[in-house]
């Protein structure tokens, strides 16, 4: 690997420890990103395309 990726990845992971809980920063970031994605999926409006479920206009 070259460049910033090697700078970023080629060292031991940083861990957070709060009492009995120990988690790597990278794992915590992935979990937070998943929670954010879940929240966005629930609250963001879905783009409206053609609607096959509508009743035909009279």
């Amino acid at each position: 690997m070259t460049g910033w990726i090697s700078e970023f990845m080629n060292h031991p992971a940083t861990y957070l420890k709060i009492g009995w809980l120990q988690i790597s920063v990278s794992n915590l970031l992935v979990i937070l990103l998943m929670l954010a994605t879940f929240a966005l999926a629930v609250f963001l409006p879905f783009p409206k395309g053609h609607d096959d479920t509508q009743e035909p206009r009279t």
Partner: peptide, 8 residues
């Protein structure tokens, strides 16, 4: 159904 139009 209409409710399927959601990102989730």
């Amino acid at each position: 159904p209409a409710y399927v139009a959601s990102w989730i």
